[in-house]
Every structure is written in C-alpha cells, then in structure tokens.
Amino acid sequence: MSRNPGRTTLAAVAASAGVSVATVSKVLNGRPDVAPATRSLVQTLLLEQGYTPPTSHRDQPQATATVEMWVDDLCAYSTEVIKGTVEAGAELGVAVVVTYPKDLTDKGVSWARDLVAGGRRALITLMSVPTPHQLAALSLARLPVVVIDPLKLPEAPVTSVGSTNFAGGMAATQHLLGLGHRRIAYLGGPATSTTNQARMHGYRAAMEAAGVPVLDGYIRTSGFCYPDGMQEGAALLDLDPAPTAIFAAGDESAMGAIQAARARGLRIPEDLSVVGFDDTEIATMTSPQLTTVRQPLRQMGVIAVRTALRLAAGERIESHHVELATELVIRGTAAAA
C-alpha cells in the first residue's frame, strides 16, 4: 500500500535532521534525554514539514468539548476574568477547566495530545505566555492558544486579548492633575511586564504633557498584589517630599498603598489621593470606595473563549490582538490637592 504523499512521516523528519526515528519520537514525547540543539532542530523541522500525529481530536471518539485555562494565581483580578470565561463557556456549551501551569516547561507533544484526547479544544492563559517548547507542542497537536493580558511579549506570534493600558494610565494621571496634584507617584507591577510598562508610559505621557516633572524615586515597580502596595507605598510615603497622590497599577496594590498611608496617620483622600487600575470587586469594598480605571475583565474572558473556539474550528480571525477600552471610574479616594 502506498503511503499518503501529502503526509510527513517521522522517518522523513529524522532524515532531514540527520537523527534516528527514535530521537524524533523522544522529542515528540517530551523525553529529557535529547540534546537541546537537537531538540530545537527536530521541533523546527516538525513544524516546517507540517508533521501531524497519526491521531488527533478529529479521529477520537467525541468527548465533551472543554477549554483549558491556565491561571498562575487566584486574586481579585483573575477571579473576574475567570468568571467571564466560565460565563462564555456556559453560553456556548463548552466547559472551562481552570488549572495551575506548574511543572509543564518540559512537557512535549504527548502532553498536548493528551489535552486533545481529553476533549480540550483550546488553551487560554492568563498573563503567562507558554514557552516556545510548549507552543511548538501545542501547534503540532493543533491546539490553539489565546493569551489574556500577556505579562511579556511572546517570542512567537500568539493571539492575545488585552485592554488600552496606555490610555488608562493617562486617564488616571490626568484626573489627579486635574485635581491640582503635582507630586504624583506611580506604583507599578513587575518592571518587565508589558501591561505595567504601558500604564507607566501613560502616566509619564500625562505628566510630560502637563509640564509636571516626575520627581526622583516617584516610580516604584514590584507587583500588582496587596503586599506589594503596602511595601512600595510605604517607600513612596517616606520620600521627602512625599507625594500627595499615587497612581497604582492595580486595585490590590492601591489598597496596600492606602493601608500604608493609614499606618502613618494619613487620611484618604484628604492627605493622600489614590487611584487604582482594574475595577475589581474590592474597589467598592473599602471606605471610601476606590477611584480606579476599569478594565472590562469579564468581557476579556468572553472574547478569549470565543476567539479560541473560532481558531479551533479553523476560522480566520480579523486580528491576532484585541484591545478593549478602559474607563476611569471616579469614586472617593481622590480629592483636590
């Protein structure tokens, strides 16, 4: 029986790479006993030659369609996004399985194929971007990936959903400038985070446009969580002169900065104005309620699910990056200087 000429075989890939079929099989199955350079070469050839595993979800018995969602940490922000993905899944008749992507760095094609065999139709990740090795394995298994709010720019083209972080950073800072503040500090997330950089650039752009200098030490980067806000907020308030307003790149870090201020006997907003970012549920759980920049977090989850399912169905999508509009929500933590 003649072999299908349109289908690449392991033997063909092995011949191109100058290795044995067993070595190619080891790469496919994520075995560790392959030299990194050989692994990289074989993965490249598998992709270039369009190798397709002999079984795929089209050949498997019909399983309940599910979408895998990777979440590094459960917090107010991620909870809102998860709600959006679950709601979209329920509407579309698709289950959403939330997992922690631990110890998956070295997983190979067999891992990706197991996801497909388990009914997975797509992978959605929140902030974290799969490694090139993972992306290669997922591509070979024909499992599409959508990233929500990627913390860093991926090394390979990946479909993503985010928000207008730069515009949101500008809006928050312009609001504080409009209230008469001139000593405005920025309390950001991880320095290498693309979302943090966009919000910080928005802050800087607003300050520059208003002709207001950013004083030494007025930009702090750490994380988006409550303890980060307490620590870095305290550092900002220890400066001389201390800021009269803080724009925090997350609601949780904004709450931490408020707590640091209250520990020093400062009143909010009389002595210190604070603006956050995200508009999670905790923004309305403090007194006074938090002025913040609203990200459409649930809608980001909805769009991620719909986009992932379109990719899984082989549809063409209009854009590989979607940005949803942010909106300033004025409440009670910012007042006139």
Rank of each mutant, 00 (worst) to 15 (best):
L297N: 08
A308D: 07
R306F: 15
V27T: 05
G211D: 07
T164S: 14
E327K: 03
F224M: 12
G178V: 03
A312L: 08
S110I: 00
A141L: 03
S319C: 05
F247H: 10
A112S: 10
T85W: 11
R7E: 09
L140P: 00
A37F: 06
L177F: 10
R7G: 11
T131C: 05
T326A: 06
P288I: 05
H201M: 08
L215W: 11
T105H: 10
T44R: 15
G188T: 04
A35P: 02
R204Q: 14
V147W: 04
Y218T: 00
Q49E: 06
L92V: 04
K102W: 11
A312N: 01
E281A: 14
A95H: 04
G301P: 13
T66N: 11
L311K: 05
A198E: 05
D279E: 15
T8F: 08
V71R: 09
E87K: 13
V161M: 12
M1H: 13
D238E: 14
L324F: 09
A261I: 09
V302F: 11
T8P: 03
V21C: 05
P144T: 10
C75L: 04
A76K: 05
V86L: 14
V19H: 00
Y100E: 09
I148R: 02
L45Y: 00
E315Q: 10
D106N: 10
T194V: 11
A122P: 11
P132Y: 10
E327C: 01
G189R: 02
D216V: 02
S25T: 00
G211A: 12
M200T: 02
H320T: 15
V34F: 08
E208Y: 10
A209Y: 05
D149K: 05
